[in-house]
Design a protein around this nucleic acid. Structure first.
Length: 732
DNA sequence: CTAGGGTTAG
């Protein structure tokens, strides 16, 4: 009725009827319309106000404010507010104004009114609290809540059903528990499902699943929301099996799952890699007609990729009509986790093309794809995108960047990323320590590690492993032993087999084989990796006696493993015991074991080229061979002598030298030099095994004669060759 | 007139 009155009285412009205004989007109202609305309101009041009683005027104001909510205009409310203020109606309209401002999205204006007017209704209190929480300002929400009782207002079930969320958002365990106590005292127990489910959610977020369960058990008339909160709680704390149990319970009670529930349950299936349950939920989604619901689709996609079914997850992805940021990110993450980096990069480009902005999840995952392939150029481009979105200060993206540059051998860039981080946590420090470790910067890693104490960060077992392997890669025996014993004495860290393997490697390569063996026996860990580490140390120091002893342990633990036999056969080969080598080889053939072929990759102009020893299948093999011969002649002039100790076959000397020349890493370097002859770029190669000793010497010479840097990442670490020297100082 | 749960990462 009021609406008609307003329209008739002031005469809206013809093409601007009430309907169009009411359905306009909040921010799309042009100022001209707002002005005309205000003018209309003014003249409306000029006429309608005359002779109206107090309550009639109040009603008129209220109806006008109501209409402001309709057009979502804060400006209009402000004008009406000042109009009302002049006539002394302000205080009586307080609650109405607060409501209107909040509905138009302005907590700030609402708060102003809230602070100014007396006699605030409980609804105003509750609305303020809820709005603050919705806007991520939980601190203010709690402040308001704490002012209620002193102001003579008793919190009710509406208050508690929002305020618990504020405590969980801020992680205020103690205060949250106190609020729970207060709700009990006030008789606002968990008889209300709304209160019950926020409370369950709060305890779940605090990791207090026992309390969450206790609260849940007290709620009468449990509904789907409460169950979902419980399911998510268990899942977040690694109890996905319990989550599924709760889900079954809920279904048994005849409570129907909705999109929220189903997507959470799918996450549980993914975590458990429980494909059977996952498929069952997929069926339920179809049955419930929720196939187009974005969240359940996204978790469906993730569930399949966690179960290793990349193709199924891609199939789900293709069914999206308008994939959003999270959807794109999920599919990319799934691909990276399943080792399908190339497709992940393809999808990432598609995502950018369809104008979806990547977020920190997307970028950190895509960076991991780049680092696993050591694609420096690609990764640098991603870094540029990261900068564009200002995400280089994000700790997740930062850790991925540090990891990436570390794996590409660019420790300096990694450390500059590290220094630019907004917030440093254990993971980012760990990434940096690993970058140093991989590149042989043992002292830098130690320095960073020692500095952790000042920043109050507690090293975890990843940190200890990182700093140990830094010592290992840099040959810092004393420091490594010191770190190892402080790790053991720190008390709250449980050392894993990886820590022991690292220590055994350090001792073993330093020639302290007996100590290494004692350490293994002392901790009594039966793990193949550790024994095999010792075995390879035996190989380096030519201790055949110990090798035999160790070999038996290794075979006991992993009789089917080919790597062991390869190691022993290599040991015999290096001591020149060819009859033993032949014996081993036939034994291996019988067991159908194949030596993992040595391969190298080189990234030239953003294309990856693969090389295998003695393999001439590359289309440019003539050029490569020519370049290789040329390089060999030149390095020989500088004093390079082929070291045939690294040939593990019984060939005559001439053939041994030939086979050395055609090692995959040499082919890769020769190719890169041929392709980028007159450039001054760094050559980056990647090898799947440890770099061979002869190739190591050869590359030092090559870096000198061509005046270029060569960075080789092998399975263990990095080697930076520059001007005839290597960063590892010939220790690796 | 006001209120609760979900999807992507190291």
């Amino acid at each position: 009725m009021q609406r008609c009155l307003l329209e008739r009285t002031v005469g809206f412009p013809e093409n601007l009827n009430w309907f169009t205004i009411q359905h306009a989007k909040p921010r799309s109202i042009p100022p001209s319309i707002v002005n005309s609305f205000t003018c209309a309101a003014k003249s409306f009041f000029a006429t309608a106000h005359n002779g109206a009683s107090f309550s009639e005027s109040l009603q008129l104001y209220s109806s006008l404010i109501q209409q402001c909510i309709g057009i979502k205009s804060i400006t209009c409310i402000t004008k009406i507010q000042s109009h009302a203020l002049k006539r002394g109606f302000h205080h009586s309209l307080g609650n109405k104004l607060i409501d209107a401002y909040l509905k138009c999205g302005s907590v700030v204006y609402a708060r102003k009114v809230f602070d100014e007017v007396p006699h605030r209704h409980i609804v105003a209190w509750n609305s303020m609290i809820a709005s603050y929480i919705r806007n991520g300002r939980s601190k203010e929400a709690i402040e308001i809540y704490q002012r209620m009782v002193p102001d003579g207002i008793l919190p009710d079930e509406f208050t508690f059903s929002s305020v618990f969320k504020a405590f969980s958002d801020l992680g205020l365990v103690h205060e949250g528990q106190r609020a729970h106590g207060q709700s009990v005292v006030l008789g606002v127990g968990v008889s209300n499902v709304f209160v019950g489910s926020t409370l369950v959610d709060m305890y779940a977020k605090f990791g207090k699943m026992r309390d969450a369960r206790l609260v849940s058990d007290q709620v009468v008339g449990k509904d789907v929301v409460l169950f979902t909160a419980l399911i998510v709680g268990y899942s977040h704390h690694g109890e996905d099996g319990e989550s599924l149990q709760v889900f079954r319970n809920m279904t048994k009670k005849g409570i129907e799952a909705n999109e929220y529930t189903l997507s959470s349950v799918l996450v549980c299936c993914g975590n458990l890699e429980d494909l059977t349950s996952g498929r069952l939920i997929h069926g339920l989604i179809v049955k419930a007609g929720l196939e187009s619901a974005v969240a359940s689709q996204t978790s469906l996609l993730t569930m399949y990729s966690r179960c290793g079914l990349v193709d199924d997850s891609l199939k789900v992805f293709r069914q999206f009509i308008n994939p959003n940021q999270v959807t794109w990110t999920s599919v990319i993450v799934g691909l990276v986790q399943n080792g399908r980096e190339e497709i992940a990069l393809l999808k990432f480009r598609q995502m950018l093309r369809s104008s979806i902005t990547p977020n920190s999840f997307t970028l950190s995952s895509i960076l991991r794809a780049c680092s696993s392939l050591a694609m420096l150029e690609q990764g640098k481009q991603i870094h540029a995108i990261v900068m564009k979105f200002g995400l280089d200060i994000d700790k997740y993206v930062g850790a991925a960047l540090i990891d990436f540059y570390g794996k590409c051998g660019s420790t300096e860039i990694a450390s500059s990323v590290f220094n630019g981080l907004l917030e440093v946590d254990v993971v980012s420090v760990n990434s940096m320590i690993y970058s140093y470790a991989q590149n042989g910067f043992g002292h830098e890693a130690l320095q960073l590690f020692n500095g952790m104490k000042d920043t109050g960060l507690e090293p975890n077992n990843v940190t200890w492993l990182g700093v140990l392997s830094a010592c290992n890669n840099a040959g810092l025996l004393e420091e490594g032993c010191h770190i190892f014993s402080s790790a053991r004495n720190s008390g709250n860290i449980e050392l894993t087999k990886d820590h022991y393997a690292c220590m055994v490697d350090l001792l073993g390569r330093a020639g302290r084989l007996k100590e290494a063996e004692m350490l293994i026996n002392q901790v009594n860990i039966s793990d193949v990796v550790i024994w095999r580490t010792l075995l390879s140390a035996c190989r380096i120091h030519g201790d055949v006696e110990m090798a035999k002893r160790v070999m038996n342990r290794v075979i006991d633990l992993a009789p089917e493993d080919g790597g062991t036999h390869v190691l022993l056969s290599n040991l015999y080969a290096s001591t020149g015991n060819w009859s033993k080598v032949i014996e081993m080889k036939s034994a291996m053939r019988e067991m159908r074991l194949k030596k993992n072929p040595a391969m190298s990759w080189v990234d030239v102009e953003r294309e990856i080229h693969t090389f295998m020893a003695g393999d001439w299948s590359h289309p440019n093999f003539r050029d490569i061979r020519e370049k290789l011969e040329e390089l060999i002649e030149k390095v020989k002039e500088l004093g390079y002598v082929p070291d045939t100790r690294f040939v593990l076959q019984d060939l005559d000397e001439e053939k041994k030298i030939r086979s050395l020349y055609y090692h995959s890493e040499k082919l890769a370097v020769a190719f890169a030099l041929w392709r980028s002859n007159y450039k001054n770029t760094t050559i980056r190669i990647l090898k799947n095994l440890r770099i061979c000793g002869d190739c190591h010497t050869w590359m030092k010479f090559v870096s000198k004669i061509v005046g270029r840097d060569i960075i080789a990442r092998d399975v263990k670490r990095f080697h930076h060759f520059r001007n005839g020297l290597c960063s590892c100082g010939d220790y690796w």
